[in-house]
Design a protein around this nucleic acid. Structure first.
Lengths: 323, 323
DNA sequence: TTGTAAGCGTTATCAT
DNA sequence: ATGATAACGCTTACAA
């Protein structure tokens, strides 16, 4: 690996002149600057980032902690993040939760985003600092230099249920995601509260325990069928479970939406390709990522303080699985 | 940021003792070792990776260059890569083509993988070295310390066409991907050569110019319909175009597979959810990534030389869009 | 305009 | 067993 020393030797100047020349500083004659640049290029010299970062404190790199490569739901979020990062002239590295400590602790990054449930709150709270603001997308977390950018599940669900009631639906079932997750709780509460307000009681036998997987949706619907407890509409805590629900109903020749409506949450790519197309709540993934990164840069480059991020608003996509 | 110096001061020892203690070296008494470890923990000390890497040459980090966050086809590949990297005790960073130079040039990584057409061959060839082996997944590239792990498109297509001929198909159409891409060329050649061998001439009016997008598949099928040139089977250079083709046929009430069969390539997630389920060629994505990373580690940790990677074999998934 | 030298946070060599 | 000290490759005051 060719170092600044090698370039200096070949150019017959001191290393500081090389540094100055290459960093476009004024204190070097145009003539030598040219020569140095040329020699550097011809020697294929690139400054060692680590050595540089050891000196200057800014690295112009931010990290995204992410490891759920199974769920392609996330990739539009990442795209949004990436576009914003590039636009700000920074570099993005994505690393899995296994590696995040390595990057969080050591001044290699100027800021971070977290989209990985495997990372504990404690880790985040212990890593965050004035020199390392963190934006989290997968939880709500309070603290100095920490910013949460999450979807407003509760409100989206309220909007949905209100509209369903207007359409005349009264008998609801709910297929839950993993019980203790914030997403699931907010989505469920949104539904329940709205029903209650409208004088519709939600009884617990219409609550089915899922875990966000297609399979758990399938099994929940099977249960409805066996127990002859088919509602007018089944609201699923996410699309994957809705897909499972639909599959089970289809197998029993229960028509959608004539016999029962099915509604998901997330608006994954599949939702619009299924037969029938899935009515769901669309979280604007690209904008979500973009906004999260924007928040980070408002701190990083604008040095804004006391930002309170807005929640991301999700919207209903009426399609064919509902009337 | 607390440094080794701070720990040394607080523990009343020299920095070398701290370093030795924390790195589990023998030349430090058990007693002081314990004290130092304790103090380090209580001070929340983590060694600065960059400073360390400046000294020792191994970073135990590899990079994946990737930026097509639009095509979720890729994510299982990344998962395979990530699992292998973690299994070897390394860290993975994923960075987009914009940033790759920064990491390729500066000794921050021990090795790299490339899955990004935006990276030029020249860049790869100029960055590769004994200290930085590179595995490419998206092209075939020759050179010292460069290894290509690609899918055997040609063979898969030969297998497919041979079986189709056995099934009695004789009238083929082909919807191409972006013309000059290796994937497209190999897939097309595989089809054409096999047909020729079996005495079936492939005429150019049955070749439709697509670009791997659903839309281009849709338009190609529209063209077939308008020109009343519907074959027995249309082979698409990827699944997305097959989806477009199917959509167009459906709109014209052309039945699949009764009137025409449609076959894709890739086996994206959608393929198995479409109605009818798409017959396609499945590239084992997880294994592909896993294998590519494995090659890298055979060089990195086993110091193997002169490895000639096998091509990844793809397999036909007979489903409902073909007879 | 140019060069010298200190320092960033480590590890490693060599005295002690 | 412990501690100075050089070195990694760079930036940056400061001196020349």
């Amino acid at each position: 690996m060719v170092s600044i020393k090698d370039v200096a030797k070949k150019a017959n100047v001191s290393i500081s002149s090389v540094s100055n020349a290459l960093n476009g500083r004024a204190n070097v004659s145009e003539e030598t600057r040219k020569r140095i640049v040329e020699i550097a290029k011809e020697m294929n010299y690139y400054p060692n980032t680590m050595a540089r970062n050891l000196k200057v404190k800014r690295t112009k790199t931010v990290a995204l902690c992410f490891s759920e490569f199974d769920r392609n739901f996330y990739f539009q979020i990442i795209k949004g993040i990436n576009d914003c990062v590039v636009h700000n002239g920074y570099d993005l590295i994505i690393c899995a939760h296994h590696s995040i400590e390595k990057f969080l602790r050591n001044g290699f990054i100027d800021g971070a985003m977290v989209l990985d449930k495997n990372v504990s709150d404690e880790l985040i709270l212990s890593a965050v600092s004035d020199e390392l603001p963190i934006v989290v997308l997968d939880r709500e977390l309070e603290g100095k230099n920490i910013y949460s950018v999450v979807v407003d599940n509760y409100r989206a669900m309220r909007d949905l249920v209100n509209e369903l009631i207007v359409k005349g639906y009264t008998r609801f079932s709910y297929v839950s995601g993993v019980e203790h997750t914030q997403d699931n709780i907010e989505r469920y509460e949104g539904m329940k509260d709205t029903l209650n307000e409208k004088g519709i009681e939600f009884i617990s036998k219409n609550y089915y325990h899922g875990d966000f997987t297609e399979k758990s949706g399938y099994q929940s619907a099977k249960l409805m069928i066996i127990s002859k407890n088919i509602p007018e509409v089944v609201i699923c805590a996410n699309d994957n479970m809705a897909i499972g629900v639909i599959k089970a109903f289809k197998e029993s020749d229960i028509r959608i939406p004539e016999d029962v409506s099915v509604i998901g949450f997330d608006d994954i790519e599949l939702a619009n390709y299924l037969e029938p197309h899935l009515t769901t709540i669309s979280t604007p993934k690209y904008e979500w990522g973009m906004y999260a990164a924007t928040i980070l840069f408002r701190i990083l480059v604008e040095h804004e303080e006391s930002i309170i991020p807005n929640k991301i608003q999700a919207n209903i996509r009426w399609r064919q699985t509902s009337r």
